[in-house]
């Protein structure tokens, strides 16, 4: 049995907006086994990103507990928080907004190395940055260039290099491919997969596109209005979806096949009849659905 890197127990994140209570994340529990990828899918506003930010300790928590290597994030000492900040990194959706436009790529990637005193001196750090660029498939001269000189896919590679610089254990990948061309999406997914194999990283992959999540994830968490409605091993969730919302999401995925598209029936999700509250029940091995 693999060890869990993260355990999320009854996590809730509530916000107040115009005197309304918004339950962005509502009693969510799941585990992220070390060395695996957990894919989180759901529509905009379903609580995917809020969950990711809570796990990375950069977003608020209303109640519940997040354990990292068995220890609660809320009980961390300053030194432990410092180490956690190095071990957990984020990669964002918009590679255009996530990089400082006035800062050379080398400086952006090197910031983490300086913050965590990695690399003995300037020369060692520069060598490390060039290695990182090579690792993500960018030329070494990128070090002295600015973000605007790169395409969307290349910028996402820069974002990944920045995250990898501090030798993390865990990456929160928040829609890292949504803004990219289909052909570039595949390159980034392959790159993430290869890096994970080489460095035994653990990923949380947040997306609304189910077809790419399928390729990178070992298990899937489906969220709807702040709740987990279904979770399980990727193949089971894909080929044997149990919750009506998962079925609706899967039925809408477009296929590059006109005959399939002509005959496909999109299942509409009816939130008034489906179960959207209650508890997760294990229907088959490791495969849970809200019931």
């Amino acid at each position: 049995m693999t060890k869990n890197l993260f355990e999320i127990k009854n996590l809730s994140v509530h916000f107040h907006k115009n005197h309304h209570l918004i339950k962005a994340v509502d009693q969510v529990s799941f585990a992220i086994p070390a060395g695996t990828t957990v894919g989180i899918v759901g529509e905009s506003g379903s609580g995917k990103t809020t969950t990711g930010r809570a796990i990375a300790k950069i977003g608020p928590i209303t109640s519940g507990e997040i354990l990292f290597n068995g220890q609660s994030l809320s009980s961390f000492t300053r030194q432990q928080t410092y180490q956690f900040r190095r071990q957990v990194q984020m990669v964002f959706q918009d590679p255009f907004a996530a990089l400082n436009p006035r800062q050379k790529v080398g400086t952006t990637i090197g910031e983490g190395l300086e913050n965590f005193h990695l690399g003995a001196n300037r020369h060692a750090r520069e060598t490390k940055i060039i290695d990182l660029l090579a690792e993500v498939g960018l030329p070494s001269d990128a070090i002295n260039r600015f973000p605007h000189e790169f395409s969307g896919g290349q910028r996402q590679r820069i974002g990944i290099a920045r995250a990898l610089a501090v030798a993390p254990k865990f990456l929160v990948l928040d829609e890292p491919i949504s803004a990219l061309d289909v052909s570039i999406q595949a390159q980034i997914v392959n790159l993430l997969h290869n890096i994970q194999q080489q460095q035994q990283l653990t990923y949380m992959f947040i997306a609304h596109d189910l077809s790419m999540v399928h390729h990178i994830s070992d298990s899937i968490v489906v969220m709807y209005h702040g709740k987990i409605v279904e979770t399980g091993p990727t193949q089971l969730v894909y080929h044997h979806p149990l919750h009506p919302y998962t079925k609706a999401l899967l039925s809408a995925v477009p296929h590059a096949d006109p005959i399939y598209e002509q005959h496909k029936r999109i299942i509409n999700f009816d939130s008034t009849t489906a179960v959207t509250s209650g508890h997760l029940v294990e229907k088959e091995a490791q495969h849970f659905v809200l019931a």
């Binding site: 289909v182 595949a186 392959n190 997969h193 077809s211 390729h215 894909y238 296929h255």
Partner: peptide, 23 residues
């Protein structure tokens, strides 16, 4: 061909997705 092949196929459990080489 390259464009068609880079669309992920959810029925197929390939490790690596097809990508067009180069830029």
């Amino acid at each position: 061909w390259g464009l068609l092949d880079s669309v992920p196929d959810t029925d197929d459990d390939q490790e690596q997705l097809f990508t067009l080489p180069g830029t």
